[in-house]
Nucleic acid binder design. Structure first.
Lengths: 187, 187
DNA sequence: ACCGTCTTTTGACATATATCAAAGGAAACT
DNA sequence: AGTTTCCTTTGATATATGTCAAAAGACGGT
């Protein structure tokens, strides 16, 4: 639980009351590799803070499996559009490694938002951080070559190369597995 | 001002007090075509609600002018990373048509966030809507062809074709002007 | 109405990446 | 250890899009 609050601490300093209220809704989960947190086409009812482990968000497009996002220790896994709109979305979430997660349900979070201004602020800041992340990834996809994108990814999270199958990294970068294999072959 | 509050009303129903506090910080601006709301490399100190007119957010990459976002009547123009982080960013904002805008400064907004839980909530919901928009655009860039992206854009906002130069639409779609011209030539 | 500037189209060619196919390796299960 | 399944590499070819260049067209100011 400390790792979760350390993460939260990057965004806001909670008072005792709201901190305890938030702690009270956290659900610990210990799950095996391959476990599905959300099936494609379902509604994302919770977000997951990853204390230990690795997840990916993915979807199927024309029969191909596309990795949309990879979440590592100390970050959050969620199907964001579904979580925010409460509508089904094509994205699913699965564990790439046995993982220890803290779960927060949408309904609990809504209740906390209404009751605690501080937590509403936390929500705003988490969303803001999400926009920044997504915008930066968007810029990369828009105007960096596949080669540059791969270099940036391994610079940011070197361990992924050994933890995530090549095909998943490739679709995350917006290229095919074959192309990534060739990029890799030239350093 | 009504158009601004109509927009806000999509997200949250403000009480009288917070509504008046928000109204009090709105600054109307009437500006000519070509006016620069933010110079590339500057810090985005405000966001702009467009009551009438058209803006684009852009940046320079390797000497090329890239249109990052186009904002039309009834939406918001802002350089989001700079606005949120208070850091300089490569993006600038300019008017593509003479426009009537409502400006909200970052510092006013921060004060309102702290004072009114309702406005903090509004901020959270605006950020959430921003993530959804950006994610959908990201998905398109990732896995729709240039042809599909162009069709979607004109389906969503047909008037843009006549209001925005081709080169700007092309870079917004992530392709060159020549490619877009050719796409257009085949319907 | 004219001139200069900005915008769009068209052409020839180059290149990055995709697709299809098959073989080689590595990991997992019994 | 052996077998199945998954993962990665390599090859040949196809395709979408980019780049460079120049002409044609539209627009705005005087």
């Amino acid at each position: 639980m400390d790792s979760f609050f350390a993460y939260i601490g990057n965004f806001v300093r909670l008072g005792d009351e709201s901190r305890e209220a938030l702690a009270a809704v956290l659900q610990p989960m210990n799950l095996p590799k391959g476990h599905s947190l959300l099936r494609p086409g379902g509604i994302c009812q919770s977000f997951y803070f990853i204390e230990k482990g690795l997840t990916r968000t993915y979807y199927l497009k024309d029969g191909k499996d596309i990795t949309d996002w990879i979440s590592t220790e100390g970050s959050i896994a969620v199907s964001i559009i579904s979580f925010l709109t409460h509508q089904p979305d094509i994205r699913g979430i699965e564990l790439l490694e046995p993982s220890f997660l803290w779960t927060v349900s949408h309904s609990d979070l809504e209740r906390l938002y209404s009751r605690y201004h501080e937590i509403e602020r936390l929500g705003r800041l988490l969303m803001s951080a999400g926009i920044i992340q997504l915008q930066q990834r968007f810029d990369d996809l828009h105007f960096a070559t596949a080669h540059e994108r791969y270099r940036k990814l391994i610079a940011a999270t070197p361990s992924l190369v050994n933890r995530v199958p090549l095909g998943m990294i490739a679709s995350y970068l917006g290229i095919t597995q074959e192309t990534l294999s060739r990029i890799r072959a030239q350093f």
